[in-house]
Design a binder for these strands. Structure first.
Lengths: 215, 215
DNA sequence: TGTACATCAGTGAACGCGCGTTCACTGATGTAC
DNA sequence: TGTACATCAGTGAACGCGCGTTCACTGATGTAC
């Protein structure tokens, strides 16, 4: 029985601890909620003490932001792929919804976001930090939506940059419903509803209008 | 200076206290969230002690259910009116969305629901109680939707009883977005998005299909 | 290569705090006669 | 109408608990020479 772990520098070890804390926190927040999961339980899961959390994060909200970042980084690839496929509007919308529904199979992430948002109301710095992180996601969806609209020859009543948060809100609502009533909101219903929303918002591009409005 | 309050029986007084507790809890939950509002603060707002809460409610979750009931009772009238107006599908959807958006101007109620749902995860009795209360609301929306669809001569891919929770989820997501980003989700956007969803889900009734499916 | 010192990730105990819930009690209200 | 007793809405203090955060400390790792 020798050392099982490879020799790591102190920095590498710290980074590894941080990464494991974020991963564990992600899983436990999803399972039990933000408030119901204590830092001590997260650390104990890794045979650490909660003090180690404070060697890596400034606070519990800071840890959550790291969880959000980790998740966002993983999702962005999927959204990028699903969003940029050269599909018709209907298939594009269904594909995006399928990816998002697959990433939140029981609505726990949507619920967690809602809880964190409610629990940290009044923490202006946190709100700002969260909005900063949501922005790029929306921008990516807006891009993909714009391309899909061009391909399909339709326009939307709002610019893509405004449609993205609206569509995100629709999807989030659908996913949140899974938390309440998992059986009645399977992935294909989420897809159908989101595709319906996109379909309903799309109008045929008027023949006289250019592909892009000159500003 | 005589007695300002009219003479009430003990039962009337208790009912009045209960009513005031529910009303105050409703307001404070909306302003500061469920978890962040303590029973002591609610009672103090009425110059009572938190013990009085326990003379009227079994627990904090029980108080929340009373808040939910109070709100639901008030809303049901509005939904009933908005839902039963003999309008075209588009105007009907916009009307319903307008009423719901007006009832939750900043998304706080949607956020509160999400928070409570997350915080009470694992409390099976509470989940069941909440679902029991949501059911009739959905049934009412389902009714109204069915009538509107008949008037408009369209059908939906899901029966009205399934469409109602889906539509509710879409609306809830839109309202929740107001909590994050109030400026960008004014009532008319909520209306337009919900109407778009309804429009997109509706299909012209096939000529050979009867008004109602025989079962 | 070896030694003396510096760094710092993680420890573990304490701090400070607020909460939901319980319970013996009180005094105004209600009831029985 | 008056009296003696019962009820119970609301009191106020205590209970039990868990949490996020802080901090002096440790010992393995890293660095300078």
């Amino acid at each position: 029985m020798q050392e099982l772990r490879p020799r790591l520098t102190r920095d590498e070890r710290k980074a590894q601890t941080r990464e494991r804390l974020v991963k564990t926190a992600h899983a436990m927040f999803l399972q039990r909620g933000y408030h119901a999961t204590s830092l001590e339980e997260i650390a104990a899961e890794l045979d650490l003490t909660k003090g180690s959390v404070y060697a890596n994060f400034a606070s519990k909200t800071d840890l959550f932001l790291a969880v959000f970042d980790r998740r966002t980084a993983a999702r962005r690839r999927g959204y990028g792929q699903a969003g940029s496929l050269p599909l018709g509007l209907e298939d594009w919308a269904r594909g995006l919804a399928r990816v998002m529904a697959g990433d939140d199979p029981d609505g726990r992430w949507a619920g967690l976001l809602g809880e964190v948002w409610a629990v940290t109301a009044g923490d202006a710095a946190f709100r700002a930090a969260l909005l900063d992180r949501v922005g790029p996601l929306h921008a990516q969806i807006a891009d993909a939506l714009e391309q899909a609209a061009l391909r399909a020859g339709v326009v939307f009543p709002y610019p893509a940059a405004e449609m993205a948060p609206i569509g995100g809100a629709v999807l989030r609502g659908l996913l949140l419903q899974r938390l309440l009533d998992p059986q009645r909101m399977p992935a294909d219903v989420v897809e159908a509803a989101f595709a319906g929303f996109i379909r309903g918002m799309a109008c045929p591009r008027p023949p006289h209008s250019p592909e892009r409005e000159d500003r």
